[in-house]
Nucleic acid binder design. Structure first.
Lengths: 151, 151
DNA sequence: AGCGAAACGGACCTGATTATCCTATTGTCG
DNA sequence: CGACAATAGGATAATCAGGTCCGTTTCGCT
C-alpha cells in the first residue's frame, strides 16, 4: 500500500506537525521518537527538503522543519516525491488501450480504488493530523497532557 | 498499490476467467496473451495452485484451470496468497497500540482507504470481470468478437 | 514401453529498495 | 578564530522482489 520509505516519511512529518513551536528538529530526535533508522531517515528528509516540503538548516541547533503552514501540506505532498505514483495511471492488466471508452475489465473497479486512495492523500493535511485526538484522549483528561492549542 | 506479481496473477486469472470452455490452459498460452514472462508466470500459477485457487495438471494437454466457478473467486482470493496483505492491519505510523479507541492520528484516514481497497477486492469476482463489456464493445458490434485471442 | 509435452522445484542472477558508514560542509557559540 | 554540532552527500553493504535456467516428475499419446 505504501513503501517503507513512504511510511517513514509520514511518521516523521506527523511528528514534526504535532510538535509545538517553530524550531528545527534534529534527525536524531525524530528518529528516536518514531523508531526510524536515523541514517536512512536523514536521506528521506533530505529528499523532502529538496522537493520543497521541508526546510533544512545545518550547524548547531539545525535540523528540519516544515516549509509551509501545516494546513498547506497534504499527505500527497509527502508521498509523491518518494514513490512512483505515476504508476497508478497505468492499466492494471497492462492493456495498451484502457480508458473510459475502451476499458479493461478492471478499469472501473480500479479507478474507484485509486480515486479513493489519491483523494484521501490529497484532502488530508498535516493540520488534520496534528489536530487529531483519539476517543480515549477525548474522554480521559490524562491523555490531553502533550497539549496543543489552536483550533 | 499492487506488486508486479499481484498484477501478473490478476492478468492470468482474468484471461482464464474470460476463456470459454473448461479445459486446462498452458502457461505459454497465457503468457503469450497477457505479456507476462512465461517462466515467472509459471511460478505464480504454481503458488495459486498450492493455495487452492487453481487446479494444475502435468503432462501432455495439461496446464491450469480455475478450481471453482468464476463467481466464487474474488480478487482477494487471487492477491492474498501472493502479497503480505496482513501488513494492512498494522498501524501506518508504527504505533504498537492503534485501534478504534487509542488511535494514531492517521488511523481513521487509513482505515477508510484500506477498507475501500479490501472491500473492492472482496466484492469483485472473476464472474464480474468475465462479464464486463466496455462502452465501445456495447456500442459497436465489431468489439463483441472474442477480444482475447493470439497465438 | 518409449517419446514428448507440460508442470514442478531448486539454484541462481539482477536490479531496486532499504540501510549503514564515512567525510565534507556549514552553521553556532565561546 | 577555533571547537563543536548538525546536515549534506557519496560510497558501500544487505535484503528482497522479480526473473531466468535447468533438471525432475508426471502425464497423454502412439
Amino acid at each position: 500500500m505504501l513503501t517503507q520509505t513512504g511510511e517513514y516519511a509520514l511518521r516523521a512529518m506527523v511528528y514534526m506537525a504535532r510538535k509545538p513551536g517553530e524550531g528545527f528538529c534534529g534527525v536524531k530526535e525524530i528518529a528516536a521518537s518514531t523508531g526510524v533508522p536515523a541514517n536512512y531517515l536523514a536521506k528521506i528528509l533530505q529528499q523532502l527538503a529538496r522537493s520543497k516540503v521541508l526546510d533544512s538548516q545545518k550547524g548547531f541547533g539545525g535540523g528540519f522543519r516544515l516549509n509551509r503552514p501545516r494546513e498547506e501540506i497534504t499527505l500527497f505532498d509527502v508521498i509523491d516525491p518518494l514513490e512512483r505514483v505515476e504508476k497508478f495511471d497505468q492499466c492494471v492488466l497492462g492493456q495498451r488501450l484502457c480508458n473510459d471508452q475502451v476499458a479493461c475489465p478492471l478499469h472501473e473497479t480500479w479507478k474507484a480504488i485509486r480515486g479513493q486512495y489519491l483523494g484521501s492523500l490529497h484532502s488530508t493535511t498535516l493540520q488534520d493530523i496534528a489536530d487529531f485526538r483519539s476517543k480515549a484522549e477525548l474522554l480521559d483528561p490524562k491523555f490531553t497532557a502533550p497539549a496543543l492549542s489552536k483550533r
